[in-house]
Amino acid sequence: MEFRYLGNSGFKISEITFGNWLTHGSQVENDVATQCVQAALDAGISTFDTADVYANTSAETVLGNALKGERRESIEIFTKVFWPTGPGGKNDVGLSRKHIMESINGSLSRLQTDYVDLYQAHRYDVSTPLEETMQAFADVVRQGKALYIGVSEWNAEQIRAGHALAKDLGIQLISNQPQYSMLWRVIEEEVVPTSEELGLSQIVWSPLAQGVLTGKYLPGQPAPEGSRATDGKGGADMVKGWMKDDVLTGVQKLKPIADEAGLTMAQLSIAWVLQNPNVAAALIGASRPEQVESNVKAAGVKLEPAVMKQIDDAIGSLAETDPAKTISPNLRDV
């Protein structure tokens, strides 16, 4: 495993980070989830990412139980706040002071820890004044409940405004957590340059494009049983945007490139996002321990410029690049 600094800070995280979105507390049994976390620890992963909304708080509970007994100083725990939790009451959502202050306490209890290393705004809240949000985050940091602050799926303008307020308040906004993969490159034009300028890193989710970049989905053929595309608990909805024959055909062109590099298609895809110097970590999930053991081998892989060009040629115009695709919901319309 290799480790990278997160933003312009002295804080290091494992470049492969384990995330439990869409799996723990919902799609897989808790004992299997614990096995996946143990496989991550055994592989050298020290950084774990979750959110209060995952499985409506159950994912945090599962992760807290799985990490029980680990030396707290040797691991990094990230969580997030924004989306509705609990019964979904009028104040159970967003980035108001009330929701942030209540949510951090709930997360810490479920994770069985006194603090999280990184507390992230899961989306930008267009319904709450940014000053209110950042003041609440500053208070969370000053209370020792979080060491650093991050955001997720904020656009360049939102990151710039949040960074300025954080600086005024004396806290560090050091990361953004966007979707990023060979097929989804919307951060490259605006978010990455802004983040480089301000000293933020990316912690990227879905580097496998919901599993499509593993190559297991073939054009003109039904999805394999047990795959995310057949999951009725939410997985199928997330992956359906990629389940088009032109995309699946383009993805199959990556197989000889991966073979030549001595990698699986999944390892190639994870290694690809890590070639971006603004990316501090790639998030991987797992429903089986073997998936962790395989995908973690992308750590430390260096792809030559010729290989990167081959990948660009294979994917071509299939990749989404429009920075306007980073959109925050308006909670007042919900």
Rank of each mutant, 00 (worst) to 15 (best):
Y5P: 04
Y5H: 14
Y5I: 08
L6S: 03
L6T: 03
L6H: 03
G7N: 09
N8M: 09
S9G: 12
K12Q: 14
I13M: 10
I16E: 00
F18N: 02
F18Q: 00
N20C: 09
W21T: 04
T23D: 05
V28D: 05
N30R: 15
A33C: 13
T34Y: 11
A40V: 05
G44N: 13
I45T: 02
T50V: 00
A51E: 02
A51C: 06
D52P: 02
T61D: 15
T61Y: 12
G64R: 05
A66E: 06
G69K: 12
R71L: 10
R71E: 12
R71P: 04
R72P: 03
R72F: 07
E73V: 04
E73M: 04
E73Y: 07
S74W: 08
K80G: 13
V81T: 13
K90Q: 13
D92R: 14
G94V: 09
G94A: 12
G94M: 10
L95V: 11
S96D: 08
I104C: 03
N105V: 11
N105C: 12
G106E: 08
S107G: 08
S107M: 05
S109P: 04
L111T: 03
Y115S: 04
V116T: 04
V116K: 01
V116Y: 00
Y119Q: 10
Y119H: 08
Y119N: 11
A121D: 01
E131H: 11
E132L: 07
A136E: 02
D139I: 02
R142K: 15
Q143R: 13
G144M: 10
S152I: 05
S152T: 10
N155R: 11
A161F: 11
K167Q: 15
L169R: 06
G170W: 15
I171L: 08
I174K: 02
I174A: 07
Q179N: 08
Q179K: 08
Y180P: 05
Y180H: 11
S181K: 08
M182P: 00
W184S: 07
R185V: 05
V186A: 10
I187Q: 04
I187V: 15
I187S: 10
E188D: 10
E190Q: 15
V192Q: 03
S195W: 00
G199K: 06
S201D: 09
I203C: 05
W205I: 01
P207E: 09
L208V: 11
L208D: 06
A209F: 08
V212D: 01
L218W: 03
E225S: 10
D231M: 11
G235A: 15
D237Y: 07
V239K: 14
D246R: 14
L248A: 05
V251S: 03
K253C: 03
L254T: 01
P256K: 07
P256G: 01
E260A: 15
Q267L: 04
V273M: 07
Q275Y: 11
P277R: 00
A280D: 09
A281P: 12
A281V: 13
G285T: 02
G285P: 02
G285Q: 03
P289Q: 13
E290Y: 05
Q291C: 05
A299R: 00
V301W: 10
E304G: 12
E304K: 15
P305E: 14
P305Y: 13
D313K: 04
A314I: 01
I315A: 00
L318A: 06
D322E: 05
T326Q: 07
S328V: 05
N330L: 01
L331K: 09
R332Q: 14
